[in-house]
């Protein structure tokens, strides 16, 4: 009873604090949306969100991608410590396989569109990467392996690609006598597209890897073809 009362009291306090915070929020000192739109012409992207993510505050995005990479590295390290369990991937489901044939081209097209639309409309590398990852997860569920990525070195290369391209662009702007990640105006749009392309691949693969590295599996980070394995 006392616990219930305590929980109720805590709920009410937090609720009241939230209400106060929402209702009496201080006015922003600076009108950020206005500042972004007024300087949008200088950025390499026509869409305000993409401009903020990959031009004005590119450093934050760089660190975000690094965080994602570290998460995958930790998952890989944890996976190494786990004993290999029985195979459970690859549902023997003909329906899923049949649907995948229709769905996969659409998903890939969608990912490409989101990536391309990112410069002028809502979309971008993270969204495209997650759609790519969704198709990868579906493929894994249908029991299809990616032979090309069986090689751990290749897998890691693609995982690191996004961050590597990002850092390379940043360093090359440093070499060119500018600030870190301060793109020259003429090629800013192209640079952002290149970065986004690399990011899409890396983010997609990173998310698939997180799914792939769930504990009971035969092998570590690579993606073996599971059709030939016997199921328990």
């Amino acid at each position: 009873m006392i616990r219930l009362l305590g929980a109720l009291l805590a709920c009410l306090t937090v609720g009241a604090a939230l209400a106060v915070a929402v209702l009496w929020r201080p006015l922003p000192v600076e009108d950020l949306p206005l500042r972004v739109t007024s300087r949008l012409a200088e950025a390499g992207a026509g869409h305000a969100v993409t401009a903020v993510l990959l031009d004005f505050r590119a450093y934050d995005t760089l660190l975000e991608v690094a965080v994602l990479l570290v998460a995958v590295v930790v998952a890989m390290a944890l996976r190494e410590a786990q004993p290999d369990g029985p195979d459970r991937m690859g549902l023997a489901n003909p329906l899923l396989r049949a649907v995948m044939g229709w769905l996969l081209p659409l998903l890939l097209l969608m990912a490409a569109y989101l990536l391309w639309a990112g410069s002028s409309r809502p979309g971008g590398a993270f969204q495209a990467g997650s759609v790519l990852a969704a198709s990868g997860v579906l493929l894994r569920l249908a029991g299809v392996g990616f032979n090309w990525l069986d090689n751990p070195l290749r897998l890691r290369a693609v995982l690191v690609l996004g961050l590597a391209v990002f850092v390379a662009v940043g360093v090359s702007t440093l070499i060119g006598g500018r600030q870190f990640l301060d793109y020259p105006h003429e090629i800013a749009a192209d640079l952002i597209l290149v970065i986004e392309l690399a990011l899409t691949l890396s983010i997609g693969l990173a998310l698939v890897s997180l799914f792939q590295l769930a504990p009971p599996q035969h092998t570590g980070p690579h993606l073996p073809d599971r059709r030939r394995r016997t199921r328990r």
């Binding site: 979309g123 969204q127 997650s130 969704a134 997860v137 998310l207 769930a214």
Partner: peptide, 21 residues
């Protein structure tokens, strides 16, 4: 809409798959 796309793909899709897994 940017956050909506990410939420639908990651929040509802991938996280759900991971949780079911």
């Amino acid at each position: 809409p940017d956050i909506a796309l990410a939420e639908a793909a990651i929040g509802a899709g991938l996280t759900g798959v991971l949780l079911l897994d």
